[in-house]
Amino acid sequence: MFEQLVDGILWDIALVIFFVGILWRIIDVLRRGTRRDLSVPRNSGVPGAIMANIRGFFPRREIAPRVRMKVIAGYMFHLGLLILLFFAAPHVKFIAEHITGFSWAAMPYWAFIVTAQVAFAGLILLWIHRLLHPVTRLISRRDDHVGAILVFLVMLTGCMALAEISSELRVFHRFTVELLMIYFPFSALMHAIMFVPSRAYSGATFGRRGVNL
């Protein structure tokens, strides 16, 4: 019963909400337009937009020592999760069967496990940091915690289902994934997509004003 629900209708609903929600959020942002900048542009906005996108991947030198842990753990988690999502053998099989129709080379099992360990370490460190650091604790909203816990649950249920021997565990993993997909468009998790236009927007604004990024 639960299995049919998760594999069938709930998956379809989650898929629709995920993509429609993302589209709606993007359209919403575009519809708001940009604020008119009446000043004479000192530079084109394009290089600024590109620079800001690249620059955002590295911490500023002045604060680098202080954010080192956050940067390292952040890369561990984000890269790990990205690789897991697209190159873990069960995921490749699932995506090929249910979404794309074609598949690509998957990671060997040991690389899968090591990547998961790196991603887990990063996520746990970041979440503990969020809870312990006085400033991040202050500026964290419920949304941030729910996002972190949901992603952790998705990864944990995935880890529990690693042996691929029982449908219960697989369904449990898929269920948490569907919850995450439904939650995704309406939360800060949208940064997974929005970080590019957001950096580009502020980069272009600064670029036009002649700020050296």
Partner: peptide
């Protein structure tokens, strides 16, 4: 319990190396 134990075994093996860290 087989399902529980399987999940526990996989979690134990995966999180074990994090304890080294």
């Amino acid at each position: 319990f087989a399902v529980t134990a399987s999940a526990c075994k996989e979690m134990h093996n995966l999180f074990g190396p994090l304890f080294i860290l």
